[in-house]
Design a protein around this nucleic acid. Structure first.
Lengths: 262, 262
DNA sequence: GAGTGGTCTAGACCACGCG
DNA sequence: GCGTGGTCTAGACCACTCA
């Protein structure tokens, strides 16, 4: 931070106004992180593109490279950005070959997920609907607001394994069609980035064991006494804004849900 | 350690001998991290105790404070130590009040885990046994090696919710008794630290939906048609050595398994 | 060889906890 | 007021990528 007229904010923000009760000291690198985050949100750099070099950003924000570095370190730890030595720092995307299907934790008992390949998708329906009370609450909408409801089956090696319903805010996903859902190659979340500019950043899952009803059992080709994993996922974009509610039923006779605890 | 003859390695290790094929460049802070890790393993500092200050360690290893800092940062990220500003850096322990039951992801539908309080434990049995092929493989033992098998029920608010079996290497857990399992207040993993010097550092879980057999159903007070979550956990100490295989059946009518995806 | 991220250092100062 | 971790800087050099 140095000698020229302060156009960037940090210089001023250095001494935050002492809030009544919570002093809320915020280190410089956190403020820088916030600024970069804002640019990410506003789409100044698109998924897959590189962001400016650390030196450039340091110049832009009038801080040292080390401070920018620490800000980017955190963004990288949150998977918002990917660092590649010698090349640059890139906006993370679900279209990456490496961490594809980042949020899908279902693995095959035999072999590994790579040889199994991507799931075959069958879209059962995709239509506009009104948000029920619970869907509205999850997506931070009002009951009755327009949502998109999609239902589909994912099969691995020809075996139907996942039956899921997706609820999306009608606002952000206006025009989403069954064709779009079915035809896009690669992760659905990559399609959301490309077609709707919506980037899923993190998600929570609530998991239960359940028995399917008759229709669900038929869709998955199992009996009604076959226990299934019920996975309710709430996915968020930037700013912790919920953007997708997904309810899945997973068969766990050929696959298992994997979780690494630290 | 400071102005004396260099017994610490890093100064010498600074220029690693170039291995035949893989140069395997290892940054200084990684080497420091390894040294600290070794001290943790060897019990130079016990769980809950503080480790030397960054300055002290910097002196001991003859590197700058920043380098020690980065090493400790990684250890903290892996939950092996806990930093407390103004106080020091402490060896992590499962006995901490804050992150108690770190590996238990089952949450109540109503209210939160704190008001629910710790589970009531009923130890069904705890005895020596011979490792079956699959248990031996999981624990990196040989089939027929001695293991400890414990079975217990955990209840929340008086409702039996978890039925689980624990397999432990006989070597490390010699003498573990049902009384010990039942009487210790707090996480079982904290008892393992205290009584056996075994610290669980991370774990993997494989989750499936299953139906209980008659005995299991009775233990949990549910019918045989009640789907349950089967949670197979493999817990590791330092060095990725597996030290516990745990197979649990979770009721998910009053609780759910929570997972945060990043 | 130029440019990018990655490491390392040395020193200054800040926030926090505690006696 | 002291010691601890936390932040910030400035500068040097290293490893990697690509033209």
């Amino acid at each position: 931070m140095s000698s020229l007229p302060p156009t960037a904010t940090p210089a001023a923000a250095r001494t935050p106004a002492p809030a009544a009760v919570a002093p809320a000291f915020s280190p410089l690198y956190q403020q820088i992180k916030g600024l970069i985050l804002r640019s990410l949100q506003e789409g100044e750099w698109k998924p897959g593109e590189s962001i400016p070099s650390e030196m450039d950003l340091a110049g832009r924000f009038r801080v040292s490279q080390g401070t920018v570095r620490k800000a980017i370190d955190e963004l990288a730890a949150e998977n918002l950005v990917i660092r590649r030595q010698g090349k640059g720092t890139f906006v993370a995307t679900h279209a990456e070959h490496q961490v594809q299907y980042r949020f899908l934790k279902l693995l095959p008992d035999q072999g590994d997920a790579r040889e199994e390949g991507p799931a075959q998708r069958t879209v059962l329906e995709c239509r506009r609907a009104r948000a029920s009370a619970d869907v509205a609450r999850a997506l931070a909408l009002r009951t009755g607001d327009t949502v998109i409801l999609a239902r589909r089956i994912l099969a691995f090696a020809g075996v139907p394994t996942i039956l899921e319903e997706l609820w999306l805010p009608g606002q952000a996903f206006k025009g989403l069609s069954a064709e779009q859902m079915a035809s896009y190659q690669g992760p659905t979340y990559a399609m959301f980035e490309l077609e709707f500019g919506v980037r899923m950043v993190r998600a929570d899952e609530k998991i239960r064991a359940v028995l399917p009803d008759a229709a669900q059992a038929q869709s998955l080709g199992v009996s009604e006494t076959t226990p299934l994993l019920s996975v309710e996922r709430l996915a968020y974009t930037y700013n912790d804004a919920p953007m997708e509610l997904r309810r899945g039923l997973y068969r766990t006779d050929t696959h298992y849900y994997f979780n690494a605890l630290n």
